[in-house]
Design a protein around this nucleic acid. Structure first.
Lengths: 234, 234
DNA sequence: TGTACATCAGTGAACGCGCGTTCACTGATGTAC
DNA sequence: TGTACATCAGTGAACGCGCGTTCACTGATGTAC
């Protein structure tokens, strides 16, 4: 009962080809306009063939979202782990930089997971949550490391919101252990970083271009100045 | 040649009724799914009747965007002007609070103007720019007032990006006079505020609820701490 | 090596749907005399 | 006050389109003997 060899020579991995084509279309016409028939057309197959790989359109979207979170999380952890664990500030900086870089590299993916939700599509929570929690867990882990090193300055930071206690409980299963205060601070850091990045990506104002680098670095410095105490230049 | 009285008793102002219905539909099914036929159905008229008020679907969307910017700008200036001009910090605080409040009051409007752009729709720049510049000009004017009072702390702030010089030139026609540095700082402030608000609105994480107030106040305090010097409590 | 058979990825026709937009029209409303 | 006329907001039918999804099918591929 060995697995059957591929039959289609042109598209050895149709499942992947479908997703790649979907991303290209999302980049061109936006996620809401994603169309199975258009994907099939571009791939030179007929639309029903897609149903051999995804039960329906929503399942394809879900797969795209999970892939995006996974790719994003990979980039986050790769950046974090490129700096020695002892250098907590360096890790915070690297993770923050990586956040923007990934968003600039894959703006469509970024918009799909963090932008306006798709109309008529509700992401199945149980399916997407693990990859989402893992991805956002990188920043949490870095903040937690700052706290564990006794260098988190958050005395005046507002208490985490009650509604988050439950989410935080689930978080621990996928995103790793962290004190509540670390999660709270991470939410604010995430919001700041997301703000700059989404403004830069959305295209509602002129692109930041190279100078976006300087603005972004300034913002990361401001975050470190505000939330980290002790020698900040390693 | 006096204007003709209304003929339709049920809908004395159909143009407005169309826009209101459009907003309701955007709230329910998202802006990309906005449909003239669905609007007509809800209003009890036929779809072609809409063409007496808007030349096509895009024109309706443009009108909605302009209305949203206008409403947003009104709220911004109302908040700003509720504080005496001499109290520059109070004005910054009031404008910042108003930003979030308007977004929470009208999340669909907020998403339409600041969220992911609509696929296949390109806002006609000349039509939307004035209301957009005016609306965002409120924050700029407040930062400029801080600067004019000699209290803007922005020595280490990165220079404004070259691509913005042109945009800034146009800005002055609609958003008012301001030094380049004030615009630069305003962009960052806007990005921070937008980050928190869009995270809160998008629904990708649990809602902040009442505790969002505390987090938002913290963020405004942080901005004032960072960018304003002198006695900050008036 | 050769033949009969099972698998199953992809096809092509068809379904019902909602969409934006056009067009000739109608009939109530208002105006001119 | 009464009548003929002009206006024009809204109608209803129709267009061509693309969509997601179903279904019976086909025919190349692989397997068993």
């Amino acid at each position: 009962m060995s697995p059957r060899p591929r039959r289609n020579q042109q598209q050895p991995n149709l499942q992947e080809a479908i997703k790649e084509t979907a991303w290209r279309q999302i980049a061109e016409t936006g996620a809401p306009a994603l169309s199975l028939r258009a994907i099939a057309r571009e791939l030179g197959i007929t639309a029903p063939a897609i149903y051999n790989y995804f039960p329906d359109r929503d399942a394809l979207v879900t797969a795209l979202i999970i892939d995006a979170y996974t790719s994003f999380g990979d980039a986050q952890f790769l950046a974090r782990d490129s700096v020695p664990a002892a250098d907590v500030v360096g890790r915070l900086r690297a993770t923050g930089r990586s956040y923007r870089q990934w968003a600039l590299d894959y703006p469509q993916r970024y918009q799909l997971i963090f932008g306006t939700p798709l109309a008529g599509y509700a992401a199945p929570f149980e399916q997407t949550f693990p990859s989402a929690a893992r991805a956002l867990g990188a920043i949490v882990s870095v903040v937690e490391a700052v706290r564990a090193a006794g260098r988190l300055r958050a005395e005046s930071f507002p208490q985490v919101m009650p509604g988050y206690e439950q989410a935080f409980g689930m978080w621990k299963n996928y995103g790793g252990e962290a004190e509540t205060i670390s999660l709270s601070v991470a939410v604010l850091i995430w919001a700041r970083v997301h703000g700059l990045v989404s403004v830069e990506i959305a295209g509602n104002i002129p692109p930041f271009g190279v100078n976006g680098d300087a603005l972004y670095e300034y913002e990361i410095d401001a975050l470190i100045r505000e939330f980290v105490q002790g020698e900040n230049h390693v």
